[in-house]
Design a protein around this nucleic acid. Structure first.
Length: 831
RNA sequence: GCCGAAGUGGCGGAAUGGCAGACGCGACGGUCUCAAAAACCGUUGGGCAUUAACGCCCGUGUGGGUUCGAAUCCCACCUUCGGCACCA
């Protein structure tokens, strides 16, 4: 359906052309682009800078409704800040490296670069159709050498500083994507991208030493982020304090110790066994000849199990004895050493002291293998009987030698002191966070700038040779090896140190490397001698307002904070955090269900076709609070469409006759009140991202203006002011229609370069207040009283009310409560 | 299992200690029309009661509590969603 083009009768009797977004929206998009009204200077006298950043998209092909939901409200907020008088930088770019391009290349035999760049061009067009106020002159696309050059540069700077390193170990391998992935990219034991269960694989990989900043990353007092995200990051970093304690195994492996980590050193006298992770380096040495076969088969089994199986809490706790024994230094007891796959090689020391009485897992394990269970922290009122389950809570030390009788919290400290005094171990802090694995065995990413030489070893590519270009052509059929290995022209090179034959590193970088610093690049587009200009960065960063989804809580948002701290320590930036404020929008659904191309589609194209971009923008903002997501219904959008049509009609009425009529004082006051109170409400709500209630306030205002027009008695000047406010306040949400109306009502410059109207609270205040009168908390009457009514007068008026008196009969009045401007509550005792 | 958020009309939601349901959708009735759509006007939480009017009772997941007064604060539980999860 197209919108009718015929003239429309308005209540004022004037005929005007109909609101036709299909005509005005492309017109203004073009005019804005030509005039460059959103191009931003680094500084404008008298204006404060405001960096409004949205998480940049992956160029997947088309701008879908999820993009609209993320970017249109973000743009409205940026526009709001601009109209508040800030010099606003609102850029957009493309996170253009990554697997989909490569997979499309494999599936459809297209070039990943062409595929990506054509998607970029297409999405840029579609973003313009949204009417966003992007400064495209600062656009960046991460798959270009101008950008990834600096990924390589930072990689080398980090390497010099010891923040980049290569290590061999068990990595998470996604069998579908044919690459290793970082811990943060494993969700429920499966690849975050494709959902395939990950397996473990031993291979040398490059890491960024994010764990160096674990403690600093826990400090988040100075950033205004949702508590939820801070909590997720805290949990992910997972700091826990405890004690590393060595168990002597001299008898079986001379000179070796089993280092165990525990947060419950108060239970150390209850150790009845020690368990090693299957991957633990001492397993081989400690395994006794009679046990060799059983242990080897157990370890091989554990290795081949998937990460999901390995880490399932449902999994039965199994283990095999190594035949060796370890000595607990606290009581010199000899306890068996077992291998069990419920112990993770990657956490703590990869070995645990088994205290079945006070750890659920150890308890189950001990029961299964008939190992002794000794209570050393007595539950309150414990009678010495056997436990039915592990006792985890604090208690009193028993069977703990000199520590008997102490509360376990104290025991913990005293035992730790003794261990440290005797050199048996030391207090330790461990983290769940592990270093960021950045190597990817894929083609479409930033080449890692490293050369391997038989003579000189691992040699960084000299800075002057950067960027190491990603070759145009590659055979990227996934083979489990990096595609670049198949490209001899890329692979074979000469050593920059000795000039001899050498080969290049063929892995590429995780794409989260690209997004860790892109906000800095937006300040310095086109910079070719350095990644960004420190002077320009200083003007814009830390980002004032970052907006995006919560799914990046422990990926991008954590990596980016790490990058900032690393860059600060290398002298590139002066601040501690990249993003001062963060707002997370929720998830858009439709008819209570997840939107899905197949089963529950919601394509923006027909919606724009039928209603226009402004209506779509406003509807998405009207659905509900942005941070709680929204539930789309096809019929609901009609309400917004009707409202914008009313705004269209209202704003263009010929008000010239108004001045001829006799103005009515109360009508004029009502008009002023509506104008000023709406301005205050809308400005307050937009500041807090409450677009839904801001639009509701504007709808109420529109309805009120219609009533006041019909009732008459208002002056032409007052009306013009009231209508101008409507246009200005709606402009951030509905940029096209307001721009068109602004021009039609005689303005020659863009509404988007105007300031928001001011307001006066005293003009916004009502002259009379509606006071609720309650008897025993139940509403019995409402009274219209002067705004400055005294407490005594309000109570007297309340008591005089006939409706109230009816409820006062037959009881004793014991209390009178007055809440100024709100209510009177008369408290009665019956009888 | 642990941590977090949320439960309000037929629907999206508003109200964060003071008139529950703003604003909008939908529905119903009306105006206009040959008719329909659009547009506009009116009604719309449930129940009781009435010719009509004045009214009354119930109601924000469940149960308790604090308070003159609770959707809002506290305790317990239920449900849904999100995150983490053999973390020693």
């Amino acid at each position: 359906m197209t919108i009718a083009k015929q003239g429309q009768q308005t209540t004022s009797g004037a005929t005007q052309d109909r609101y036709d977004p299909g005509e005005i929206e492309p017109k203004w998009q073009q005019r804005w682009a030509e005039a460059g009204i959103y191009r931003v200077e680094d500084s404008v006298p008298g204006k404060e800078n405001w960096f409004a950043l949205t998480m940049f998209p992956y160029p997947s092909g088309d701008v879908h409704i999820g993009h609209w939901f993320a970017y249109a409200p973000a743009d409205a907020h940026a526009r709001f800040k601009r109209m508040q008088g800030f010099n606003v930088l609102h850029p957009q770019g493309f996170d253009a490296f990554g697997l989909p391009a490569e997979n499309a290349a494999i599936a459809r035999n297209v070039d990943p670069r062409e595929w990506t760049l054509s998607n970029v061009a297409n999405m840029r067009r579609q973003f313009n159709r949204m009417g966003n106020s992007y400064d495209w002159s600062r656009n960046l696309v991460t798959c270009t050498p101008e950008y990834y050059h600096w990924n390589q540069y930072f990689f080398l700077k980090f390497l010099e500083a010891g923040l980049t390193y290569r290590a061999s170990g068990t990595a998470n391998w996604c069998p579908t994507d044919q690459t290793t992935i970082a811990n943060e990219q494993v969700k429920d034991g499966a690849c975050e991208r494709c959902g395939t269960p990950v397996i473990r694989r031993e291979m040398p990989q490059w890491f960024f030493r994010i764990t160096k900043y674990a403690d600093e990353l826990l400090e988040m007092d100075d950033i205004q982020w949702p508590e939820k995200i801070k909590l997720m990051q805290r949990n992910w970093i997972g700091r826990s304090t405890g004690v590393t304690l060595g168990f002597d195994v001299d008898e079986f492996a001379p000179g070796e110790k089993i280092e165990t980590f525990t947060t419950r050193i108060d239970t150390v006298f209850g150790v009845t066994f020690v368990v090693l992770a299957p991957e633990h380096p001492l397993v081989e040495k400690l395994t006794q000849p009679g046990q060799r076969e059983a242990v080897e088969s157990y370890v091989n089994n554990a290795r081949s199990a998937s990460e999901i199986e390995r880490t399932s809490t449902e999994r039965e706790k199994t283990g095999v004895p190594t035949g060796a024994y370890a000595v607990n230094p606290l009581n010199s007891e000899r306890v068996p050493v077992l291998v069990g796959d419920y112990v993770l090689a990657t956490y703590g020391t990869g070995a645990v002291m088994g205290v079945p009485a006070h750890d659920e897992r150890d308890f189950v394990f001990a029961k299964k293998y008939g190992l002794p269970i000794r209570v050393v922290v007595a539950p309150p009122g414990w009678d010495g009987s056997e436990l039915d389950e592990a006792y985890i809570a604090p208690g009193t030390q028993v069977n703990s030698g000199e520590f008997d009788g102490l509360p376990s919290a104290e025991g913990m400290e005293h035992i730790a002191d003794k261990i440290e005094a005797n050199g048996w171990g030391h207090r330790t802090v461990t983290y769940h966070l592990r270093d960021w694995l950045i190597s990817r065995q894929r083609y479409w990413g930033t080449p890692i700038p490293i050369i391997y030489c038989d003579n000189c070893g691992t040699v960084p590519v000299p800075e002057k040779d950067l960027p190491v270009l990603l070759p145009d052509e590659a055979n990227f059929k996934p083979t489990g090896q990096s595609p670049l290995t198949m490209d001899p022209a890329f692979l074979n090179t000469t050593c920059p140190t000795c000039g001899g034959d050498a080969t290049r590193e063929t892995d590429t970088m995780d794409t989260f490397v690209d997004s860790s610093w892109y906000h800095l690049r937006f300040t310095s587009p086109g910079e070719s001698e350095q990644p960004f200009s420190p002077e320009r960065v200083k003007k814009w960063v830390p980002v004032h307002q970052y907006m995006g989804g919560a799914e990046h809580a422990v990926m991008h948002l954590l990596y980016s904070r790490f990058y900032n701290k690393a860059l600060r320590d290398l002298g590139f930036v002066k601040f501690d955090e990249p993003y001062t404020r963060l707002f997370n929008q929720g998830l858009l659904i439709k008819d209570h269900k997840k939107i899905s191309k197949r089963s529950n589609p919601l394509n923006p194209e027909p919606v724009i076709e039928r209603y226009g971009a402004d209506t779509l923008r406003c509807y998405l903002m009207f659905l509900g609070p942005w941070d709680q997501g929204g539930d789309w219904s096809d019929s609901g959008i009609n309400g917004i469409s009707r409202w914008l049509n009313r705004v269209w009609d209202l704003s263009q009425r010929d008000a010239s006759h108004l001045s001829k009529a006799q103005p009515d004082e109360s009508a004029m006051k009502a008009l002023t009140r509506a104008a000023h109170s709406t301005t205050g409400r809308v400005v307050g709500e937009l500041a807090e991202f409450k677009f839904n209630t801001a639009i509701a306030a504007l709808m109420e205002y529109t309805n009120e203006l219609n009533r006041l027009w019909d009732n008459g008695g208002i002056s032409s000047a007052e009306w013009q002011d009231a209508v101008e406010r409507l246009m200005l306040l709606a402009a951030p949400m509905a940029p096209h229609i307001t721009e068109e109306l602004w021009e039609r009502t005689g303005h020659s410059s863009s509404i988007h370069l105007e300031s928001l109207p001011g307001w006066d609270d005293s003009l916004a205040a009502a002259e009379t207040l509606t006071i609720v009168v309650q008897v025993n908390g139940k509403v019995r009457d409402t009274l219209d009283l002067p705004a400055d009514v005294s407490e005594d007068d309000a109570i007297t008026a309340a008591m005089d009310s006939e409706k109230v008196q009816r409820h006062l009969e037959g009881g004793t009045l014991i209390k009178k409560i007055y809440v100024p401007g709100r209510l009177v509550n008369l408290v009665m005792r019956p009888g």
